[in-house]
Write a protein that binds this DNA or RNA. Structure first.
Lengths: 105, 105
DNA sequence: TAAACATGCAGTTTTTTAACTGCATGTCAA
DNA sequence: TTGACATGCAGTTAAAAAACTGCATGTTTA
């Protein structure tokens, strides 16, 4: 779980995921096309995304194709985000408490 | 959006959110109780959580009560996670492509 | 087979983040 | 009003992450 959050913390990596969502199978060279980034930096970002299982790859000859894997993101939703969403009503109550305290002082 | 992801990237901060989910209104001192962390470190973590709007606070005399705000997390789900979840079927197709290529080589 | 290509890996520098030290401010309670 | 308490803020140090440099490996194609 920590690897996923860490991987998603970087805007560059989130943009990479976005591009792979639109264009599955991009190579490393295609991923950095139009950016200022060096190939080596992008490569390390990809490694981090792979370690988090957010990206899976397939070698085709000398090219490495990259694909988005949405499963870990769904896992975050299921195991983590939902926990907070379910307590929305409760949380609103908490915030109301806050406001009550505020208005009474 | 970046502030939220960055804030969630740190395990210590995610634990803080968990504690505030269970026990709304904890003070800073109560938050660090039972941990090795110094008060000042925790204070910076709280600042980061506040900047991301994941935590709201209310002063009560000399005590500062902390409350979880689930809205940014729900926003991530709505504006970001959903985008990837909706493409689940598509993504499975992509992965199938990968496997086909793999088995044919 | 040799040149161009696509990528990987190791090592260094730079930047960012986290933790700590020390002092300041405001609140409560005797 | 004074001492203990709860927290804030500025500055330093330590650790982690990101970007870059240079070289190596395997693949395609002329």
């Amino acid at each position: 779980m920590d690897l996923i959050f860490k991987a998603l913390a970087d805007a560059t990596r989130r943009e990479m995921l976005d591009r792979l969502l639109d264009q599955p199978g991009l190579t490393l060279g295609e991923l950095i096309a139009g950016t200022e980034m060096r190939r080596q930096s992008a490569s390390k970002h990809v490694q981090i995304l792979e370690a988090a299982n957010l990206v899976v790859t397939e070698w085709q000859g000398r090219e490495k194709k990259h694909f988005l894997n949405p499963v870990p993101i769904q896992e975050i939703t299921r195991r983590w985000v939902d926990k907070y969403s379910e307590t929305r009503a409760e949380a609103v109550l908490n915030l109301r408490q806050v406001l009550e305290v505020r208005s009474s002082t």
